[in-house]
Design a protein around this nucleic acid. Structure first.
Length: 757
RNA sequence: GGGCUCUUAGCUCAGUUGGUUAGAGCGUUGCAUUGACAUUGCAAAGGUCAGAAGUUCGAAUCUUCUAGGGCCCACCA
């Protein structure tokens, strides 16, 4: 054996051999108990980061259960990540001076598809590099045709069950990326903005958004507020920058008399609270900001200006007219921004598809309460249940091309109720009311071919593809599903589309393991969507519920931060590539360092000290093996029969060895218990401690003085047991050592050294 | 405003049913060794487990409060 363990030459070779021997497929244990983990699919648009290296926890579990003889399946996949990927791709287009609107939907989709395919290959190799024993023969992508078909079926089923509906309400809209977002995707940022006190006839009100005043359809005061009670229900005459106008005063509890002047302008089309107030008082909606982020014709001479420009211009005009009483320049509030491009999100009214969540989360909550799904660490149960309790209906429409198109058609009964955007024959972008577009001479065929976007009014007739009738015109829904709508069905759609019988055998999955940061976005959705697709809307039978959960245990790991404890992010430039570190320290060391010394669910700072310690541990192990190899050679000893630990225990009568056999047996029990309880850090720490400071420092030192064939046999076998226990954590080096000591078979498929008494 | 979480050795962190002298890695100090060990071994120093009160025979661990961090959610114009 070489004097020093050289991971570089060994790791790739060993992984290839495992893969070729199909060890990662559950079929190696055809009669084993199914044990399933679905890999959280990384986004197919970039590289793996250190968070992904935490999948080592899943590999430890899978390897452990494979060694136990289970039919262990770890199913890999990648996610198309609609908005994120399109964002990344559009940035590339921007670099070459193009935009998404220079291409038809099909062209754009195809280009992104090719880009993503390249990336997927890179991600797969990175996962291999870390030694992850994934069953590549079952790999899935969220846009595989069979997966897409199932996701669409789910939508159809939900439509028939009345669980999805279309509604016209305010959405969080990014005017730069041109799409809406769900509540969960909105990031709030603290901003200091001027608070303007504006004269509204006899009243004065405070607002940060004077430019939306063109969309005001009322003024509100608190009904208890004595100062303004006389105004409630009355119309007041106000002076505005566009001339005189009248506006109604309504009384609504939403108004806080303590804030500002206790008077609020109500702009139902551009503010979520105002929208609610508007609904309560049946106020009209007046949209004054377009989806391009510019003021529209209702803004009079301010039309065409971007919101920020309009605000400045309107304020100046108001000041000229003396309509501004004062400006509070130090007002601090929080605004919603786009999590990708940081643009301030505009609440805009739009027709969108929503999932009715209340009926769905009932079963999810029940599954948690009854322990059909367990969450580790447990404190995240509170987080999840609170999120469920306050959940509002889920906007699943995204105005992206990259994704699964919502499988809906709108019947064109009245062509004045559709707004279409399309590339005409000269590749020029056209937009307008369908009625006018047709009048201009554009043909149906041209519109359909170059179609970019369709906005159908809320009362448009909805049909599914097979319901289309000859002789009628239809336009498709151009929106795609929120990525989480498809990934939320991941355990179901993967196992349904891999190999025949997989779903029946491997569902419900055993463990779902992710970072706690996507508990809400993903785990919560997978739980309620998983239950729904697997068993429908109403379940009264608890046993049935228990058998249809998408996963039995949820394990949540913490985040891996940079060495200073700061979150890794591209913009900060402190991202460390796990593969680079694996090159330097070895994949085993990276794996071990990530598990060692961090309790489940806790964040950790990436530590070069720990990596170094893990590397040294590997080297120590290597040298223990060298010592044994040397002694074997000196004594012409060849291990003929590889006894199980239990057999060794029953055979060996040597007192000194017997004590160590006992200790290794106890250790086996201990590690088994730790793994069953998901206490990976304790298992790693105990193995480190025992192998180095007990077995090497004490046993090997002691046995040196009394080497004979019997003690050599024990030494060899006990060492193999330790290799097996360590194998799930450090698979490469343990495998290599096992071979170096003359074993022809693979540790990979050795059984776990159960130590029954 | 609501929730979660953390505060343990110089630094980074373990410590899950409360139970002997509270642990590791890195660092520090001393000694030994070139041996299976791009070293390693032996030993040492270093902690009133944030603070206070309570429960208990017994608390780093359970309860309450206080102080200070971190994260998440809700977002009053």
């Amino acid at each position: 054996m070489d004097k020093v363990y050289n991971h570089k030459e060994i790791e790739e070779k060993i992984y290839k051999s495992w893969e070729e021997k199909k060890y990662f497929q559950p079929e190696i244990h055809p009669h084993g108990k199914p044990y399933t983990i679905i890999l959280p699919p990384p986004n197919a648009n970039g590289d793996l980061h250190f968070g992904h290296a935490m999948f080592v926890i899943e590999d430890i579990l899978i390897r452990y259960h494979r060694m136990l003889g289970d039919a262990a399946l770890w199913l890999p996949g990648t996610d198309h990540a609609g908005t994120e990927t399109q964002f990344v791709f559009e940035k590339r287009l921007q670099e070459i001076g193009k935009s998404r609107f220079d291409y038809s939907r099909e062209e754009l989709y195809k280009m992104i598809w090719e880009y993503v395919q390249e990336n997927r290959g890179g991600i797969e190799n990175q996962l291999r590099r870390l030694g992850f024993s994934l069953d590549w023969s079952r790999e899935k992508f969220t846009l595989d045709p069979a997966v897409v078909e199932l996701v669409k079926q789910t939508f159809r089923k939900m439509y028939d069950d009345g669980l999805v509906y279309r509604d016209y309400r305010l959405v969080n809209y990014c005017t730069k990326d041109g799409t809406s977002f769900s509540d969960l995707e909105v990031v709030h940022e603290e901003r200091k903005d001027p608070l303007y006190y504006i004269k509204y006839g006899p009243l004065v009100l405070a607002t940060t958004r004077p430019e939306t005043k063109f969309g005001d359809t009322a003024v509100a005061v608190n009904p208890q507020d004595k100062r303004y009670q006389a105004f409630i229900g009355k119309e007041i005459e106000i002076e505005t920058v566009l001339g005189k106008a009248t506006i109604t005063v309504v009384g609504d509890e939403y108004v806080d008399p303590e804030f500002g002047t206790g008077v609020v302008k109500i702009t139902p089309a551009h503010d979520f609270n105002d929208f609610e107030v508007g609904k309560r008082h049946k106020l009209p909606m007046k949209q004054v900001i377009g989806f391009d982020g510019k003021m529209n014709e209702y803004a009079g001479r301010f039309a065409g200006l971007y919101v920020k420009q309009a605000r400045k211009a309107v304020v100046e005009a108001m000041q000229e007219k003396g309509l501004i009483e004062k400006i509070d320049e130090s007002y601090v509030h929080r605004v919603g921004i786009c999590y990708k491009c940081k643009t301030v999100l505009e609440p805009l009214p739009l027709e969108q598809w929503y999932v009715k969540v209340k009926p769905l989360i009932e079963n999810a909550e029940k599954a948690i309460d009854n322990g059909f799904v367990k969450i580790y660490p447990q404190n995240f149960v509170t987080t999840l249940k609170q999120w469920y309790a306050g959940l509002r209906d889920w906007n699943i429409s995204r105005q992206n091309v990259w994704g699964i198109q919502i499988p809906i058609w709108y019947e064109v009964e009245d062509d004045s109720k559709f707004v279409v955007t399309f590339l005409d024959k000269q590749k020029q972008l056209q937009q307008g009311v369908l009625h006018e577009i047709l009048q201009k001479g554009h043909t149906w065929d041209a519109i359909e071919k170059g179609l970019q976007r369709v906005v159908a009014m809320i009362d448009a007739k909805v049909v599914f593809g097979e319901q289309k009738e000859k002789g009628k015109h239809y336009l498709p829904e151009t929106d795609t599903f929120d990525t989480w709508f498809s990934s939320g069905q991941w355990p179901f759609v993967t196992l349904k589309t891999t190999k025949l019988g997989d779903f029946e055998k491997f569902y419900p999955t055993s463990v779902m393991e992710t970072g706690y940061d996507i508990l809400r976005a993903w785990i919560s959705r997978m739980l309620f969507l998983g239950l729904y697709v697997a068993n429908g809307k109403h379940v009264t039978d608890d046993n049935f519920l228990k058998e249809t959960v998408p996963f039995r245990d949820v394990i949540l790991h913490g985040l891996v931060n940079d060495p200073y404890g700061k979150k890794m992010s591209k913009s900060k430039g402190n991202v460390v590539n796990p593969l680079q570190v694996a090159d330097e320290y070895g994949a085993d060391a990276v794996r071990f360092a990530l598990v060692y010394g961090t309790g489940l669910g806790n964040d950790q700072a990436m530590s070069y000290g720990k990596l170094e310690a893990a590397r040294k541990f590997g080297n120590k192990l290597w040298n223990m093996a060298r010592f044994i190899e040397m002694k074997n050679a000196e004594n012409n000893f060849v291990l003929k029969d590889r006894l199980a630990l239990v057999e060794l225990f029953n055979q060996e009568k040597n007192k000194a060895d017997q004590a160590w056999i006992n200790r290794v047996k106890d250790l086996t029990d201990e590690i088994t218990k730790y793994l069953d309880n998901y206490q990976f850090n304790l298992a790693a720490e105990r193995l480190y401690e025992f192998i180095w400071h007990e077995f090497a420092d004490k046993y090997i030192e002691e046995v040196k003085s009394r080497i004979d064939p019997a003690s050599l046999k024990n030494l060899n076998i006990l060492f193999f047991v330790l290799l097996e226990l360590l194998h799930p954590f450090m698979p490469f080096i343990t495998e290599e050592i096992y071979h170096k000591l003359g074993n022809k078979d693979d540790l990979m498929i050795q059984s776990w050294p159960q130590a029954e008494k």
